[in-house]
Design a protein around this nucleic acid. Structure first.
Length: 556
RNA sequence: GGACUCGUAGCCUAGCCUGGAUAGGGCGUCGGCCUUCUAAGCCGAAGAUCGCGGGUUCGAAUCCCGCCGAGUCCGCCA
């Protein structure tokens, strides 16, 4: 809807410009300068050899607003052209559109493009820690946004089953007891940490580890069974955690598939015949031409392949399924560059990478191997517990079931929102006080706005017809934000930035809370319109929260 | 040492890609608002050399260059 208004403003400007050539841009000005602004006169100033303010005034006086539907007034100020909306017309058309489209309001046209979105992909050697959580939450939000924007998205978990980590777990399971009472991924981590120590301390185990890995690569039936059951057991725990957060994957791809199917041999042969290949006792690619100093080793002197080699084969395979997007941690930047270069050499399409920086502890980096990490389970549990205390304090008289259910949803929303609202390129330091401090503008703040809207509508449902009065400032702010939602979805998808949607949600919820404070609905003479506005706001809040995977609450 | 990312009030953060009018928020601090649709809310105050220096531009937090500081990576690991 906002795009319609922008188009109208642009047309008015172009018409007033006549045959003067200029690139007309529109921006959203700060408060007090109208609803849309164009700085076009600044670029024209040199061309016309006149001060911008003068041009703006002439231009503004030439704009005829009479035939416009959503623009009411145009003013020149400080060299800018400022447009003022006809909020009454806009509100009427907008509210009708939102109520008609409902859950589909903001949805983009089908783009006819398939996307394979890889995210989470943690090694099956223990539970997800909060760093993996950033990956999963970011990836899942992105998947939801892309789908809503009109892309056909398949989410993928790439399971790294050929690494040393899983082999250490398997080795450990041969002698150590698996604690079946524990959540599977946590039990596996316990074995992993112990086994790692053993391997470090006893040399003969390192031999055993290598032969175990070779046996797995060769497809030794008994060993394959051991690896598979260990990985699957761990995965049970991991998917349980993800499920609690509302995250799922459409497909899980096992790394070992590419080796056994011969995909890796094939891709190595292809790369070997290019001019970038070098071969002495090892086979590697010289990637200097791509600005990468570090050579990429494809095959060791003992003839085995490396993780990166297998990943090239993996990407070649999945590129056939659609456009590729990978959510990877910052530690994989070099690998991402090397992988891209290798694919470029082969003339294949390169994946797009969403790189996120690390979440570290005040004491430093997390490490599953050392057992130094905060698991996502811990974080969720603590957040839900904290939420429970809050509900108990505020709704002490409510049923136990109500308190538990609200606490779960508030906790999940808080965890997801806290992570998704900050840009991925920002490194985070995890502190419990901060993670559990339900900040004023966090997940619960959004859920509360939704619940407030719901409670009003429970008391009285919005009538089908309504008259629009002259809007208050709070109503205008709300209308403008609601109108912008489809554009926010579109650019959030295009820029692959869920955090944009998070910022939008905060603005929308803030606008609604303010409206709620100052503009009574049920006791208003404009009740009919306001009920509809509340309904529209609730719809958009719900749609937007769904895109971030946040549960909504009817009451809290 | 090299490559990449980040640097915005005491703390956290938006804006940076695509340059525009007084740099948005939040936490914390101080002061207000529940006889009115749930105060997980709202209003107000104080708090910013947008790391530093230069350049481009009518105009720079935003683009370019240099420097400083932090993080990450630089295995025949995954």
């Amino acid at each position: 809807m906002l795009s319609k208004v922008k188009r109208e403003a642009k047309e008015l400007l172009l018409k007033a410009l006549g045959d003067v050539e200029a690139e007309v841009t529109l921006e959203e000005p700060r408060q007090g300068y109208g609803d849309l602004a164009s700085p076009v006169c600044f670029t024209l100033a040199r061309q016309l050899k006149k001060p911008p303010a003068k041009i703006a005034e002439e231009l503004a006086s030439r704009i005829d607003v009479a035939g416009a539907r959503f623009i009411k007034e145009v003013k020149a100020l400080n060299g800018f052209i400022n447009f003022y909306f006809n909020y009454e017309a806009l509100a009427e058309a907008l509210v009708e559109e939102i109520l008609e489209k409902g859950e589909d309001y903001g949805k983009g046209e089908a783009k006819g493009e398939k996307i394979i979105l890889e995210h989470t992909s943690a090694n099956p050697d223990g539970p997800l820690h909060i760093g993996h959580g950033r990956n999963a939450i970011l990836g899942d939000a992105l998947a939801r946004i892309l789908r809503f924007a009109g892309y056909e998205v398949t989410t993928q978990y790439y399971l790294n089953d050929m690494g040393k980590q899983l082999a250490v777990v398997v080795l450990g399971l041969r002698t150590l007891e698996l604690d079946r009472a524990k959540k599977p991924d946590h039990a596996i981590a316990e074995v992993y940490v112990k086994a790692n120590k053993m391997v470090e301390e006893r040399e003969e185990l390192q031999q055993e580890l290598s032969s175990l890995m070779r046996a797995y690569e060769a497809g030794d039936e008994r060993v394959v069974e051991e690896f598979k059951s260990a990985a699957e057991y761990c995965l049970q725990g991991i998917t349980a955690t993800l499920e609690r957060l509302g995250i799922s994957h459409d497909m899980i791809t096992w790394e070992s598939e590419f080796v056994r199917r011969g995909d890796v041999d094939e891709v190595v042969e292809r790369l070997r015949s290019t001019k970038y290949a070098r071969e002495d006792d090892v086979l590697y690619l010289d990637l200097e031409e791509f600005g990468i100093e570090k050579e990429l080793v494809l095959r060791r002197s003992d003839g085995t392949y490396l993780y990166a080699t297998r990943d090239i084969a993996h990407h070649l395979w999945k590129a056939k399924l659609g456009k590729l997007i990978n959510v990877w941690g910052a530690d994989h930047k070099l690998l991402a560059a090397q992988l891209s270069a290798a694919l470029r050499i082969l003339g294949e399409e390169e994946p797009e990478f969403i790189i996120y920086e690390f979440i570290s502890l005040p004491s430093g980096r997390m490490s599953t191997r050392k057992g130094v990490f905060i698991s996502l389970d811990e974080l969720i549990t603590e957040a839900v517990f904290r939420a429970y205390e809050e509900v108990a304090k505020r709704r002490g008289d409510a049923s136990e079931e109500f308190k538990r259910s609200v606490a779960e949803k508030v906790g999940i929303a808080a965890v997801r929102f806290n992570i998704v609202k900050v840009s991925p390129e920002k490194a985070m330091v995890f502190r419990w006080e901060e993670a559990l401090d339900f900040e004023r503008q966090g997940g619960p703040f959004l859920q509360y706005a939704y619940a407030r809207a719901t409670r009003i509508l429970e008391k009285e449902s919005p009538p089908a017809s309504f008259e629009v009065h002259e809007l208050t400032d709070n109503e205008r702010a709300l209308v403008k934000l609601l109108a912008a939602f489809p554009e926010v979805v579109e650019s959030s998808a295009k820029q692959r930035k869920p955090s944009m949607l998070a910022s939008y949600l905060l603005e929308l919820a803030t606008a609604f809370h303010r409206f709620y404070m100052f503009d009574p609905v049920l006791k208003s003479e404009f009740k009919d319109f306001r009920l509809n506005l509340v309904n529209a706001t609730r719809t958009v809040l719900g749609n937007a929260m769904k895109l971030l995977g946040m549960p909504v609450l009817e009451r809290m």
